[in-house]
Amino acid sequence: GGVDFEAVELDAPAGATLLLYTDGLVESRLRDVWTGIEMLRERLAATARLTGPDHSPPLEALCDDVLDMLGPGDRDDDIALLAARFDGIAPSDVAYWHLEPEETAPGRARRLARRALSRWGLDDLSDSVELLVSEVVTNAVRYAERPVSLRLLRTDILRCEVGDDAPQLPRQRRARDMDEGGRGLFLVNRLARRWGATRLSTGKVVWFEMPTRVQ
């Protein structure tokens, strides 16, 4: 809506809980918003103490407990409440590198990806992933001025993220028969299960996901 906002990046350790809510939860005719936020913090801390430092409270029970802090006359507006928990990814399931923005970067990216996939027992994905990594890294080094990041994450899927310092988001286009370029994102769109691009304060990340089993 044209309202200025600030983008903030925060670390989310494994087991961390993110609680999003509208102001109807913390503001009413009986209390101002900052008093309500402090009450919410105290309620969350008390709930966390009940389960102990090694066990996060179940999300549904946490939301129910938060809503119980509303007393008579507190609900002057509709309330939306969303809770999410970060399970985290084991370090052994993450591979991360920085690549200098030069012509040799795509070849090095292919070799690094191949070694990571072999270590994870995902050799069947190697050909497709190497091709897509090469295409995305090639596009990144074309415009980047600083080192390009390459990250692979293995969960129930394989996710590849390529970050650079150029803010322009890529656009897929259909190359003509005689064009030498313009096919990278077309290949990504055809071979990946999903793909996308996210603008960051430091540039952007282009990502794609592959199933960990060949279909």
Score class of each variant (00 low, 15 high):
residue 185 L to A: 03
residue 178 M to R: 09
residue 184 G to T: 01
residue 147 P to N: 10
residue 176 R to G: 03
residue 177 D to F: 14
residue 128 S to V: 15
residue 172 Q to V: 05
residue 155 T to C: 05
residue 141 V to K: 04
residue 138 T to Q: 10
residue 119 R to P: 04
residue 195 W to L: 11
residue 114 R to L: 13
residue 193 R to P: 00
residue 124 D to R: 14
residue 192 A to M: 08
residue 174 R to Y: 13
residue 157 I to E: 09
residue 147 P to G: 06
residue 188 V to N: 09
residue 179 D to W: 02
residue 178 M to K: 05
residue 198 T to P: 02
residue 170 P to S: 10
residue 169 L to T: 09
residue 190 R to D: 15
residue 198 T to L: 14
residue 158 L to A: 02
residue 151 R to I: 01
residue 126 S to W: 08
residue 150 L to N: 00
residue 110 R to Y: 05
residue 183 R to S: 01
residue 180 E to I: 13
residue 155 T to M: 07
residue 158 L to P: 02
residue 116 A to V: 11
residue 159 R to K: 12
residue 193 R to Q: 10
residue 124 D to N: 10
residue 192 A to V: 08
residue 168 Q to E: 12
residue 131 L to E: 08
residue 142 R to N: 06
residue 150 L to M: 01
residue 132 L to T: 05
residue 145 E to M: 01
residue 121 G to W: 06
residue 174 R to K: 10
residue 129 V to N: 07
residue 154 R to K: 10
residue 142 R to L: 10
residue 119 R to F: 05
residue 171 R to D: 11
residue 177 D to S: 14
residue 130 E to S: 14
residue 113 A to T: 13
residue 112 L to W: 04
residue 191 L to Y: 14
residue 150 L to W: 02
residue 168 Q to T: 09
residue 125 L to M: 03
residue 131 L to P: 01
residue 136 V to T: 12
residue 140 A to M: 13
residue 158 L to W: 03
residue 199 R to P: 02
residue 196 G to A: 03
residue 130 E to L: 12
residue 197 A to W: 10
residue 185 L to R: 00
residue 142 R to G: 06
residue 130 E to N: 13
residue 160 C to Q: 02
residue 186 F to L: 11
residue 124 D to Q: 15
